[in-house]
């Protein structure tokens, strides 16, 4: 029989610790598939900072290190200087990247570091149990905003793609969503382009994934997909914000 699908060698054959309906696993797989297709799996170094996905190295079959909360872009900058010929990426949550690590991400982009950042925007702090993130939507409940986020107390959610697209060094910036098969396919294309930008030495590349957190949103997995579609995408528009001419 002809084999039509196989799990990428980039993913280790183990169960993940992620909750049912969480899209971390989908994002992991897309990234690893792209690296395999590019022939770069054994040539890649990645950084997983604090957050649910600090354990990404248990699943991604590549050389990796953990990093302190928010510092992955600085860590990746250091790695990149030692290995200019490797593919280097960070994989960060929204508390990690848009809150505690906002300085590191802006300056990695500002220096035009030739690394790629994958940004998992699930509008919540997952690992610590559902506190408000800078990306939590107005009205969305969190354990530190039990009646829902308000603009008066907490400001409006941060849009990281839009912010980074103002920085010259961030040459590829795209937002995708993981809520439907069609969007997952588009997401993979963005991942591929981000890596190609890096491999061509063009500058910093960034892909934001609108992702789910059924556990901390208090929604069933299928409701979580609805939430991405109905609530997140209208506030966080999908699409490309910046790309080099040839892309």
């Amino acid at each position: 029989m002809k084999q039509v699908f196989a799990i990428t060698r980039g993913m280790l054959p183990v169960d993940t610790s992620y909750c049912p309906g969480c899209t971390h696993g989908v994002a992991h797989r897309l990234i690893m598939e792209c690296l395999e297709e590019l022939g770069e799996l054994d040539n890649t170094i990645a950084v997983s900072p604090i957050g649910c996905s600090i354990v990404a190295h248990q699943y991604m079959n590549i050389d990796m290190c953990e990093s302190a909360h928010g510092r992955a872009p600085a860590v990746a900058s250091g790695i990149r200087r030692v290995h200019p010929d490797k593919v280097v990426f960070t994989y960060q949550g929204d508390g990690d990247l848009a809150s505690i690590g906002v300085g590191e991400i802006i300056h990695a982009a500002h220096r035009g570091e030739k690394v790629t950042t994958f940004f998992i925007n699930n509008a919540i702090y997952g690992m610590t149990g559902g506190q408000m993130a800078p990306t939590t939507l107005l009205g969305q409940r969190a354990t530190t905003a039990i009646n829902g986020r308000t603009k008066e107390s907490n400001g409006s959610p941060l849009r990281m793609c839009e912010l980074l697209a103002t920085i010259d060094g961030a040459v590829f910036v795209e937002r995708v969503a993981l809520n439907s098969p069609g969007n997952v396919r588009k997401a993979k294309k963005a991942v591929m382009k981000a890596f190609e930008v890096q491999k061509n030495g063009l500058g910093f590349s960034f892909v934001e994934f609108l992702s789910s957190c059924p556990t901390n949103w208090g929604r069933a997995p299928y409701e979580a997909m609805e939430f991405i579609k109905e609530e997140m995408i209208p506030y966080y528009p999908l699409g490309n914000f910046r790309k080099p001419e040839e892309f």
Binding site: A74, V75, A76, S77, G78, R81
Partner: peptide, 18 residues
Amino acid sequence: ESELAAVNMAYGAAAAGG
């Protein structure tokens, strides 16, 4: 951009064998 970033760059570069 800060000493916080500097030490984490150092961690990354040293973890990479530099």
